[in-house]
Design a protein around this nucleic acid. Structure first.
Length: 601
RNA sequence: GCCGAAGUAGCUCAGUGGUAGAGCAACGGUUUCGUAAACCGUCGGUCGUGGGUUCGAGUCCCACCUUCGGCUCCA
């Protein structure tokens, strides 16, 4: 969207070429300055942290004498509006580093002084002033505070200085600012919509699962949630079968010797549940892969046996930090659609290519278009440059072979190998990281895996790991929010609600339900003594895809009258015709019934 | 783990030291033939748990449990 040149006046010359995105970022950063200035008016002794522009808005961190309250935010917001109305110019100044450190120290701003002290000696130190507020800042900024668009302060919360839990805890205020009121309204609508779709709320309302203090952060799956789970699991198994996988299952309770071999004892023990088991120290498994290594080693493998593709849906246990737990998104007991491919080095590109195809295939019936990111060698890494050249080349080669567009995440790889991260966008435009595809040379070495090569010698295989849903728990959280609980028929816990209009139709309704059962469909009869309208309303609120209304005419004709969740309804459809149609849609895993999103403001 | 907030009936919430409430749900009865809430009645709470202050605590204090927001998207 083009912006009139006099609508927002760009102060700095470096802004002339900037696109709308940079302009918005600049405005957000300027708004953060105005907020910091308002906070200083309220708390003259506040010490300033950092205040960057972020996606959808900005934040600023402060060291304050007391915790902020919602009333404080209102007061800060009011002071900010006054500054915007005052049309204060932003003025840039530059000074030397030592002088800057001295100034910030004298001003009682230790965090600012720390930042400046870390800048290179020769670097230009710039400050931006508006009104009486002068802040260390690289810039650029708006010309004046009047250029700040509609904004709102959202919430305050704690944040460690520089994200380090050993350092002081500051208070962070988040805010959002946009170029137009419509943009701000749309953003606030999205926040509100996300709140309404919260999977924790929908999970309770749709009777999918519950949580209990007796086992914190571990879901109890109800019959309806389990139906959804099984639909997902069946699909994952089908995709794995198509990909040539076989399935294994491995123990949850494993002695520490295995974890010492795999390296988890040294690197992952903090996240494991560990205890004594009959004179041995053992742990609940946080990952499946080490045990697959043991299965591989149970016989002498030939190069002809590879690749060996193992799927594992075992239960995993991770002792997460209590503060990180969040609904289905972070649980302590979870299940993955885990895949380990043990293959020859010359098969790695093909196997990664297969993984990429399976990722696309498995996400297809959800309507997700996965995006791929190649994460390359980090600064802290194991192995030689030759190794990384080769491993990165293998992943890049597979992406090319599969003709998959991707972006780069330089330095984002694991310390032992590069990886391909897979992202999806949900219905609200939120980005979620889903699958990760990793190639692993470490584990085969630690477990001393070998196979008999074609030349009669021994060789070491490579492992390609991935989980496409990631964990079932988290994926169910994501799709619950994505579909707002209105799952397509193939996933819906109850696919058909049979609604007899009067008590005399209940028997026929039972026959219809049994016919649905026989076709492998999930159906219930609402035989409560309620009026049909009430039953329809309840089925709608439960987001059941199809309601079958049954009255005299249907009963006499052996027919059903389907009403879809979208409101569309027909009458007198033959029972067999209806069942065959629905069964086909479920088996094809159609995105059906589909309702276009409600219009956003 | 840390900072802040919250926890009252199955759910959503009222209740500012003086007899625990409402709507929905559930249950009982009546009712029920065409596409989003029939009517009447009844039941239901150790106010998260434990301790303390007080003549008296859902309300004030302390500890614990659980949940929610957040803890680098780096001047």
């Amino acid at each position: 969207m083009a912006i009139e040149s006099d609508e927002i006046k760009s102060a700095a010359a470096e802004l002339l070429d900037a696109g709308a995105h940079d302009r918005l970022d600049t405005m957000r950063h300027s708004t953060a300055h105005v907020m910091a200035s308002a906070v200083l008016e309220l708390f003259p002794d506040a010490k300033l942290g950092i205040g960057p522009a972020i996606r959808d808005g900005f934040y600023y961190d402060f060291d304050l004498p007391r915790a902020l309250t919602p009333a404080d935010l209102e007061s800060i917001e009011a002071r900010m509006r006054a500054q915007v109305a005052a049309n204060l110019p932003f003025e840039r100044s530059e000074i030397g580093r030592d002088e800057a450190v001295a100034r910030e120290t004298a001003a009682g701003q230790p965090y600012k002084a720390e930042i400046i002290g870390e800048l290179a000696a020769g670097e230009v130190i710039s400050f931006y002033r508006h009104g009486t507020f002068n802040d260390l800042c690289r810039g650029p900024h708006l010309e004046t505070t009047a250029g700040i668009g509609p904004f709102k302060l959202l919430n305050s919360a704690a944040a460690y200085w520089r994200g380090d839990e050993k350092r002081p805890m500051l208070q962070r205020i988040y805010g959002s600012v946009w170029e137009t009121q419509e943009d701000l309204d749309r953003y606030l609508w999205r926040l509100e919509e996300a709140r309404k779709r919260d999977h924790r709320k929908l999970g309770r309302e749709l009777d999918l699962f519950s949580f209990h203090p007796e086992s914190p952060a571990a879901p109890f799956w109800h019959p309806r949630g389990m139906a959804l789970w099984r639909a997902l699991e069946d699909w994952s198994r089908q995709v794995r079968t198509e990909g040539g996988f076989v399935e294994v299952r491995t123990p949850a309770l494993v002695r520490k010797e295995l974890w010492e071999t795999s390296g988890h004892w040294a690197l992952y023990q903090d996240n494991m549940f560990v205890f004594d088991d009959a004179d041995h120290v053992a742990g609940l498994k946080p990952m499946n892969c080490p045990e697959s290594m043991l299965i591989f080693k149970t016989s002498l493998r030939s190069y002809r046996d590879l690749p060996m593709r193992l799927a594992d849906y075992s239960w995993l246990f991770r002792n997460e930090r209590t503060g990180a737990l969040a609904g289905m998104f972070r649980v302590r007991q979870l299940t993955q659609d885990d895949s380990h491919v043990i293959c020859r080095e010359d098969q790695v590109v093909d196997e990664v290519n297969l993984a990429l195809r399976l990722v696309r295939r498995q996400f297809e019936p959800f309507g997700f278009q996965p995006r791929f990111k190649l994460a390359t060698r980090p600064d802290k890494k194991l192995g030689t440059d030759e190794f990384w050249d080769m491993a990165e080349g293998q992943l890049a080669g597979a992406l090319e072979t599969a003709q998959i567009e991707h972006t780069l995440d330089p330095g984002g790889g694991a310390f032992y190998a590069p990886k391909i991260d897979v992202f999806i966008d949900d219905a609200l435009g939120r980005e979620w990281q889903m699958a990760t595809i990793q190639i692993d040379y470490q584990l085969p070495q630690r477990f001393e895996l070998e196979y008999r090569a074609a030349d009669g010698g021994t060789a070491r295989p490579v492992v390609v790991h991935y989980a496409i849903y990631g964990s079932f728990e988290r994926f169910i959280g994501v799709i619950t929010e994505h579909f707002a609980g209105a799952f397509p028929a193939w996933l819906a816990p109850v696919q058909v609600m049979v609604i007899p209009i009067a008590d005399r139709h209940v028997e026929y309704a039972g026959k219809v339900r049994d016919a649905l059962f026989e076709a492998g469909l999930r159906a219930e009869v609402d035989d409560r003594s309620e009026r049909m309208q009430a039953k329809l309303r309840d089925a709608q609120e439960q987001k059941v895809p199809v309601m079958l209304v049954l009255g005299d005419r249907d009963q006499e004709a052996g027919a059903v009258s389907p009403r879809l969740r979208t409101g569309e309804s027909t009458q007198g459809v033959g029972m067999a015709v209806f069942i065959a149609d629905l069964k086909g849609r479920v088996e094809r895993r159609e995105l059906w019934p589909y309702a276009p999103e409600e219009d956003q403001p």
